[in-house]
Design a binder for these strands. Structure first.
Length: 273
DNA sequence: TCCTATGTTGTATG
DNA sequence: ACATACAACATAGG
């Protein structure tokens, strides 16, 4: 499920554990999500450490821990396709897909991911790790300019615009549903070659990318609701999966087709080729 | 049984 | 070196 705004939503679930110490670390060391991680070190150093702060950027989360006898500890989590963070009772018994459980005195912080496309990263040291600091500039940062988008589209000139929007090195945090939402708002057909957009269309694409990020973060990311909220019916999102879905702007039928290896939904009445 | 899934990466080809 | 396309990963649910 997780793109930019869902990642922010899940990051905030673990706020319940801020300022509390990890009493026990439970994990499945063979799980694919730990492929790049020293699980022995992670378990040893996080036991007794205190959760100090967290941040989300793109689809990556960073949880910072402090311990009396070690350097700062940095836990990274990527939710992949099916990952979630939840808070469970302190005596939570890990289920099949609960790959990492940080048990505190009053609760357990749980990372669960049935499909295991997610990742857990760990770093001990004074400075934030490369996998965090090397992320592309955020869509809502000043560095995300229309000129930067234009230059990127030019380099990918022959690729359909839809898969280009999924490239994290320029559109960090954008995933399949946000890309479709952006193209629908910008009235651009997803198969348009990236290099075929006019300067005006690029400005529109840039504006709508920021718009969708801003409002998705407001609606989903800032929500304290116990379950993940959905965007409203005025967005493409609630209509995109149902057969026979109609465009909330034009009332015309929506189309679904695989583009760049991902199911893509668009409104032909609004987004002509 | 067969198909789908809000993601990323490695590999082959041009 | 760079751009492009696609299979592979692993599992659950309709």
């Amino acid at each position: 499920m997780p793109e930019l705004a869902e990642v922010e939503y899940y990051r905030r679930r673990w706020d319940a554990g801020l300022g509390s110490t990890v009493a026990r670390v439970l994990l499945h060391p063979r799980a694919r999500v730990f492929n790049a991680t020293d699980t022995v070190l992670l378990a040893r150093l996080l036991t007794g450490a205190t959760l100090i702060s967290s941040e989300a950027a793109a689809k990556q989360m960073l949880f910072r821990f402090a311990a009396d006898d070690s350097a700062p500890l940095w836990l990274g989590i990527h939710l992949g396709m099916t990952g979630e963070l939840t808070v469970q009772p302190a005596d939570h018994a890990p289920r099949k897909s609960d790959h990492l459980v940080l048990a505190q005195s009053d609760r357990a912080l749980v990372f669960t991911d049935p499909r295991m496309f997610g990742r857990v990263l760990f770093h001990a040291g004074p400075d934030a790790p490369d996998w965090w600091t090397s992320l592309a500039p955020a869509i809502l940062s000043p560095a995300f300019t229309a000129d930067a988008v234009a230059a990127f589209l030019q380099r990918r000139a022959r690729t359909p615009i839809k898969p280009v929007l999924l490239m994290q090195e320029r559109f960090p945090g954008i995933g399949n549903w946000m890309a479709d939402e952006i193209l629908w708002r910008a009235a651009l057909h997803p198969k348009r070659p990236a290099g075929s957009l006019t300067p005006a269309e690029i400005k529109t694409l840039h504006r709508e990318t920021r718009h969708v990020a801003t409002h998705a973060l407001r609606i989903i990311g800032s929500s304290g609701a116990p379950t993940l909220p959905d965007p409203p019916a005025t967005w493409l999102f609630p209509h995109r999966w149902a057969d026979g879905g109609t465009c909330p702007k034009t009332g015309a039928p929506l189309i679904r087709e695989e583009i760049g290896g991902r199911t893509t939904c668009w409104s032909p009445a609004r987004q002509p080729l």
